[in-house]
Computed example of a mutant assay.
Amino acid sequence: MNKQELKLHLQDTQWPLTYIDHDRNIVRAIVIDEKQNFYFVRAKRNDDFGEATLIETSGGGVEASESLEAALKRELKEELGANVEIIDKIGVVDDYYNLIHRHNINNYYLCKAISFGEKHLTPDEINEFHLSTLKLSYDEALREYNRCANTRIGKLIAARELPILKQAKNLLDRKKNR
């Protein structure tokens, strides 16, 4: 168990705050394989947040009756086609999307991919976000987050996920050195 869970509280620096009318409980994962490749989703979107191509951790909303771990395994199966072993909880990042009046509670985990199979994407994930899978080294992922931070939504995602990615790498390095 990770005794140094990261806890971040971030504000939306890209859109003005008018009001927040809902919270969304979210699970997300840094997924690695046995060769230390990292798996993410690529989203290409053009919506209220603007036109953007993004890198993001796989994950999504927790349904009312689900545990965080069950939701995580479901989301990773849907978006990456991955069956995973949960290694550790990395931490919690709460942030805001002022544009859609939402407070996000992002629960991040480090997971090892056991196998990959068929994805089960929603119509919005296919048609609106054009989700695809990215397999990157740690350094490639850092560069990709920085490259995608050239849009307003990209800046918010990078602010949330770069500290998580770095914390995951620290966890992996500590486990390797034991």
Rank of each mutant, 00 (worst) to 15 (best):
Q36F: 08
P16F: 10
W15R: 10
D33H: 03
A29W: 03
E34V: 02
V27Q: 01
Q36V: 04
E34F: 04
I26D: 00
Q14G: 05
D33G: 04
Q11D: 15
R24F: 12
E34R: 07
H9Q: 15
T13V: 10
N37H: 01
V31N: 03
T18L: 08
T18C: 10
I20H: 09
W15G: 05
Q11W: 07
A29E: 03
I26E: 01
T18S: 14
W15E: 08
N37T: 00
D23C: 10
H9C: 13
Q11L: 12
H22L: 06
R24Q: 14
R24M: 15
R24Y: 13
L17S: 05
I30M: 05
L8T: 05
N37M: 02
L17R: 05
N25R: 10
A29G: 05
R28I: 00
I26N: 01
Q14K: 09
L10T: 07
T18W: 08
H9Y: 15
D33C: 04
K35M: 04
H9G: 10
D21L: 08
V27M: 02
P16M: 09
D33R: 02
R28V: 00
Y19V: 11
Y19F: 15
I26M: 04
H22P: 00
T13E: 15
Q11S: 14
L10H: 08
W15P: 03
A29R: 03
T13G: 12
I32Y: 01
I30F: 05
A29S: 09
E34K: 11
D12E: 08
I30D: 02
T13Q: 14
Q36L: 13
V27K: 00
L17D: 04
L8P: 04
D21E: 13
Q36E: 13
L8S: 05
H22S: 09
Q11I: 11
R24T: 14
N37L: 03
H22M: 08
E34G: 00
W15T: 08
T18N: 14
I32D: 00
R28W: 12
T13A: 11
L8W: 06
I26Q: 02
Q36D: 13
H22Y: 11
R24A: 15
Q11M: 12
I26T: 01
K35Y: 05
D33E: 04
N37P: 03
N25S: 11
P16S: 13
V31C: 06
N25V: 09
V31Y: 01
D21T: 11
D12M: 06
I20L: 14
D23Y: 12
Y19E: 11
W15D: 11
E34D: 10
D23P: 03
T18A: 13
T18I: 14
V27H: 01
P16Y: 06
R24E: 13
V31K: 00
N37G: 02
T13M: 12
N25Y: 11
D23F: 12
L10A: 09
I26Y: 00
I30S: 02
Q36G: 08
Q14R: 08
